[in-house]
């Protein structure tokens, strides 16, 4: 009951403090590995944004934007994970990364393990700095449940 109220209260009396400050911004990156304890060498951004979007695509996204909204949910999960809500957030992010790897046309069967990491971007004077704040354990993307 208390948990429900704590989730409900911010919706019934919102703070409306949109963008009051521009906080460090998370990115999810992942790497594929031959074994669970192999050292990662190359990280890829999870669903990198395109260089440009056509007007048609922008209009379509007004009505149908599931990948982008899932990405916004992962931004929220990343922030929650760093704030200490580790288990739920780690599972949600890993499930989506695994689903992404499985959706690749020719998934690399020789690299059965996946890790993700969270990097946070922020401005330091006139440059954008990038810091790695979390690296997950490896999981076998061919096993277990995913979205």
């Amino acid at each position: 009951m208390l948990r429900t109220l704590s989730l409900l209260a911010p919706a019934l009396a919102p703070s409306w403090r949109f963008f009051d400050e521009i906080a460090p911004s998370p990115r999810v990156e992942y790497t594929l590995l031959p074994t669970g304890d192999a050292a990662p060498t190359q990280w890829r951004e999870f669903r990198p944004r395109p260089d440009r979007l056509s007007l048609r695509a922008m209009i379509r996204r007004l009505f149908w934007n599931p990948h982008w909204n899932e990405g916004l949910f992962l931004v929220s999960c990343s922030e929650r994970l760093i704030d200490g809500k580790v288990d739920f957030s780690r599972r949600e992010i890993m499930d989506r990364v695994v689903a992404e790897v499985r959706s690749i046309a020719n998934p690399p069967e020789h690299l059965p393990y996946v890790r993700f990491r969270l990097t946070f971007l922020y401005r330091q004077n006139q440059t954008v700095e990038k810091h790695v704040l979390y690296v997950s354990d490896a999981e076998n993307w061919r096993e277990g449940a995913a979205q």
Binding site: R17, F18, F19, D20, E21, I22, S25, P26, R27, R49, P50, D51, R52, L53, M58, R61, W68, G71, L72, V75, L121, Y122, R123, V128
Partner: peptide, 27 residues
């Protein structure tokens, strides 16, 4: 909350939204 923040009044905050936040939809 924006107007009391000097970064918003100078335009820096909105510049940061475009520069490194997760929101811009394309390069």
């Amino acid at each position: 909350v924006k107007i009391v923040n000097p970064a918003w009044r100078s335009g820096q905050a909105l510049q940061d939204v475009f520069l490194y936040s997760a929101y811009p939809v394309s390069g």
